[in-house]
């Protein structure tokens, strides 16, 4: 396992978390919970962007693991 693949895996998990939080935000009845889930999913979205950028960087450095 290379760093790149580890980071990619982490990125996939982050995407999953974002999606689950969005679905919780939609499905919850309590308004406070809805806002909280929504806000957190936005925060996770920012982390996702950082990681995506890092994955591109790593791919440039280790082209053999591109995929």
């Amino acid at each position: 396992m290379t760093i790149a693949s580890n980071v990619k895996q982490c990125l996939a998990t982050i995407k999953g978390i974002e999606a689950q939080l969005s679905s919780l935000a939609v499905n919850s009845l309590d308004e406070e919970a809805q806002t909280l889930f929504h806000e957190t999913s936005l925060q996770i979205g920012d982390i996702k962007k950082d990681l995506q950028y890092r994955v591109l960087e790593l791919e440039r450095n280790e082209p053999q693991y591109k995929g």
Partner: peptide
Amino acid sequence: LLATIKKTQAD
């Protein structure tokens, strides 16, 4: 979900 977030944080 909570466990997954914790794992990612550690990662």
